[in-house]
Design a protein around this nucleic acid. Structure first.
Length: 802
RNA sequence: GCCGGCAUGUCGGAAUGGCAGACGAGACAGACUCAAAAUCUGUUGUCCGCAAGGGCGUGUGGGUUCAAGUCCCACUGCCGGCACCA
């Protein structure tokens, strides 16, 4: 009679056993395999089934690699600085360190329910002074290398979070965290010179086994372009304006110039007649919000009254101001070739500026141009000595020609901006800098790190651009480490990304108080072989960590310059109708009840079975019954057969090897949902064989071994019952290729491409034999007038006839 | 606007160019039961047909091929990224 597998009993037994007998041990001989999860923010809401899925995927992969003979580095930690804990403190007066510790405790309990092979000895927490000592240390090293610098400029400011933001944290003009509309604010900020690494960050993407989508997003974010800076003299003045262009080949076609309203020369170019209009335009632009500028793309502009001189042909072209030119990219000024640029075309049409074509598409000028011809393909015309040249070739050569003539220089540009690194909030790493009236910015001496976050009475952000830390006089006032004179501490804190940019290096040596990481350990155990997490960090965390790793490589801390060799982005688990799970939507599914009712193994399987791991999936509790039934059936199959002493038949050998082959292939392809369906399929097959004479012990053992990474408790229990010992000491099964060779195959017979019959045929049968049998099987569908006979060995026969 | 991805039963989904719908959920019917749950068995794309059998069918329209869910072209819808970067 069918028994019911008692998950609480079995899982309880193995949880206890594994806490005393860990399955993953470093014997110093096995090759290492570092499988990393993106560490969580310890939110007060706890984990939902979506978080669970990522951790299940990484644990399945870790256990698979373990059974293939590796020592697995599979750590977990806490990205615990950040706004929610601070906002909670503001509201309830609870110190963030206290609420954070509580949240960590709860989430750790939930994570332990997954039964992953995390090594908690490696645990890190970004808010632990022993950890952020090194976050600060890295900042000091960057400061020493000139990569951390202070600058006053208009930055992105979130009026709701009351803090400055990095470019990467502004999404469609809104704050990445809270969704409030981002404004500009002039502030003195600490910046990290990530642009110094732009080329390496871009070029090294080729080395990475990452999803193309993420590589592409980073490529576009860095946004490298090649072109030239060209100097234009201002008519009647001793001054010049430099523009940046990626199309110097079209220089003869420039009919006007546009400056960003914020350009340094903008106001001075106005004449007596234009002054009023120019000043108004500059004033209005300054008051336009980000979102206005994004949404309203109708071109506006004003003529300054001044003219620039085209350095190639001496043509006088009018200088305009328009906010479609960005002040902080290139030189903030552009030459405009309306014939060959969409935006310039629109502007010229609107303001009646002449359009001169300099590239002949298909050999001739376009008549009645209705849109710009933007491709660099065709022959140069109206371009003096360049006439007749191929535009695509000239585009590449022109920067060097211009440079040789002394009219400008070849130039690369990037969309990537330096990283705004200070935050005007409490709950972050203090920036370890002292401002001395005599010595300027002086780093806190390394032996004094960590510079601990002081206690504060009020956590509220001031909103003035100062951090709450500025209110603590006893902390702010200090002595200059260099000259000993009176000085003041930097009161800004670091962004949440600071700790997460390097945490993966610390796991393997998390108690070292002398170095960030011991170099020998780093050489032996790093970098990360497989990194698993959501795609939302594509241009944030994943870009910042690459930058940090390259810097740490440059200063000799580690010997590699890319942190994550392979990246896997799991899809999101959503609620009904693809709606993101959130507390406010009330559609959050907690794993806690499911673990209690169905067991850890069932939930693990269902998390994978719900859909392809890389795609988003809608959660539906009902489906979990299917995987639970499967585990029950397998459990009963074993109970029914273990004492029968069944001899392995040819059939069983075949099925067993097919099972190993199928599961391993699908696992290697990361097709985890079809691995589970494969288990079910083979289980059904074995249940049938069980009724026909039984299933041998070796086949059952192999099944349990393959199942172990997915459903570790039940697999361990069954393995122990069949053999004694631990399933995780078992090497990963390998299919016997010889056993997979079949002597007969089922072949589909088509007539004119339509399925008409199937035949069973010996694999050694000749083409003629197969076709003859196929014809016979297809019977009436085959006419006398046969045009073609196709046979794909082992697959299909197709008879084409009239 | 530009660049990607996706589109298959009632639902989640499966198919190196070679038997579409594996596996599972749900539903329906039956067995067991006083009854229910659980479990087990069967049916379950659609149309015609009593049946045997056959027609149609992977968002839409074309194409390549002996053969297309899969490749190519055009389009529609949904999702994601970028958004005046010259």
């Amino acid at each position: 009679m069918a028994q019911i597998y008692n998950h609480q009993e079995v899982e309880g037994k193995w949880t206890k056993y594994w806490s005393d007998h860990p399955v993953n041990v470093n014997d110093g001989k096995k090759p290492k395999y570092y499988c990393l999860d993106m560490f969580p923010y310890p939110s007060g809401n706890g984990l939902h089934v979506g978080h669970w899925r990522g951790y299940v995927i990484s644990d399945v992969w870790s256990r698979y690699k373990l059974m293939q003979g590796n020592y697995i580095i599979h750590p977990m930690g806490w990205d615990a600085f950040g706004l929610p804990a601070e906002n909670y403190a503001i509201k309830n007066g609870v110190h963030p360190a206290i609420s954070t510790a509580e949240n960590v405790k709860n989430i750790k309990r939930q994570i332990n329910q997954i039964a992953a092979i995390y090594d908690w000895d490696m645990e890190v927490n970004t808010t632990d002074p022993a950890f952020y000592k090194w976050t600060q240390w890295i900042f000091v090293q960057m400061f020493k290398k000139g990569l951390a610098y202070e600058k006053e400029m208009p930055i992105n400011w979130c009026p709701s979070c009351k803090t400055g933001l990095a470019n990467e944290e502004v999404v469609n003009g809104k704050c990445e965290r809270c969704g409030a509309e981002v404004t500009k604010k002039n502030l003195k900020q600490w910046m990290l010179k990530i642009t110094a690494y732009a080329d390496r960050l871009l070029d090294d993407l080729d080395k990475l086994d990452w999803p193309e989508k993420v590589k592409k997003m980073q490529t576009e974010w860095i946004g490298r372009s090649y072109g030239a800076e060209v100097d234009f003299a201002i008519d009647g003045r001793d001054d010049k304006i430099t523009v940046y262009t990626t199309r110097p080949d079209t220089l003869y076609g420039a009919t006007f110039m546009v400056l960003a309203p914020e350009h340094a020369l903008a106001a001075s170019l106005a004449t007596d007649e234009t002054k009023e209009a120019v000043d108004k335009y500059i004033f209005d632009s300054a008051n336009k919000s980000n979102v206005d500028r994004l949404q309203n793309k109708e071109k506006t502009g004003v003529f300054t009254g001044s003219y620039a001189i085209n350095p190639l042909n001496g043509a006088k072209i009018p200088i305009w101001l328009s906010d479609y030119v960005l002040a902080d990219y290139g030189t903030g000024a552009i030459m405009c070739v309306p014939a060959h640029d969409d935006r310039d075309f629109e502007f010229a049409k609107k303001f009646g500026i002449p359009i001169i074509q300099v590239i002949a598409k298909d050999g001739k000028e376009i008549e009645n141009m209705t849109e710009a011809y933007t491709e660099a393909a065709g022959t140069m015309i109206n371009s003096g000595e360049w006439n007749g040249m191929e535009s695509s070739k000239l585009k590449v050569e022109a920067p060097h020609i211009i440079e040789k003539k002394g009219l400008g220089k070849a130039k690369k540009n990037y969309k990537l901006r330096d990283w705004v690194f200070s935050r005007q909030r409490y709950w972050g790493e203090p920036i370890p800098i002292v401002h001395c009236p005599k010595c300027g910015a002086v780093p806190v001496p390394e032996e004094e790190l960590p510079l601990e976050l002081p206690e504060v009475e009020k956590y509220e952000p001031t909103g003035t651009g100062e951090s709450p830390l500025a209110a603590i006089d006893s902390w702010v006032n200090c002595k200059c480490p260099k000259c000993g004179g009176d000085a003041k501490r930097e009161t800004n804190t670091m962004p949440q990304w600071a700790g997460s940019s390097w945490y993966f290096l610390r796991y393997i040596d998390n108690k070292n108080d002398k170095e960030l990481v011991n170099r020998e350990k780093a050489d032996a155990l790093l970098p990360v072989d497989m990194y698993i997490g959501g795609v939302e960090h594509a241009v944030l965390h994943l870009l910042y960590s690459r930058f940090y790793t390259k810097f740490l490589n440059d200063i000799g801390v580690v010997d590699f310059d890319e942190p994550f060799t392979k990246l896997f982005n799991q899809g999101m688990i959503t609620g009904k109708n693809g709606i993101k799970m959130s507390k406010s939507k009330g559609n959050v599914v907690s794993p806690d009840d499911l673990v209690r009712d169905y067991g850890c193994d069932s939930l693990r399987l269902y998390e994978l079975f719900v859909g392809p791991p890389e795609l988003d999936s809608e959660w539906d509790d009902r489906g979990i019954d299917g995987v639970t039934r499967f585990l029950n059936k397998f459990w009963n199959l074993v109970k029914d057969n273990k004492d029968k002493d069944v001899k392995e038949s040819a059939e069983l050998v075949k099925v067993r090897n097919q099972l190993v082959d199928t599961i391993t292939k699908r696992l290697d392809d990361f097709s985890l949902n079809t691995v589970i369906s494969g288990f079910m399929e083979f289980n059904n097959k074995l249940v049938k064989l069980s009724g026909e004479g039984g299933v041998d012990k070796k086949t059952l053992t192999t099944f349990a071994t393959l199942l172990a990474p997915f459903a570790p408790h039940i697999a361990a229990e069954i393995y122990e019952e069949l053999n004694g010992g631990s399933v995780f000491d078992e090497p990963w099964p390998v299919a016997d290729k010889a056993a997979l060779v079949e002597d007969t195959k089922e072949i589909a017979v088509q007539v004119n491409g339509k399925m008409r019959a199937t035949i069973n045929i010996s694999v050694s049968a000749s083409k003629e034999e197969v076709i003859a049998q196929g014809k016979a099987a297809a019977g009436k569908w085959v006419t006398d007038n046969i045009i073609k006979e196709i046979y794909v060995p082992g697959k299909i026969v197709n008879i084409v006839c009239k």
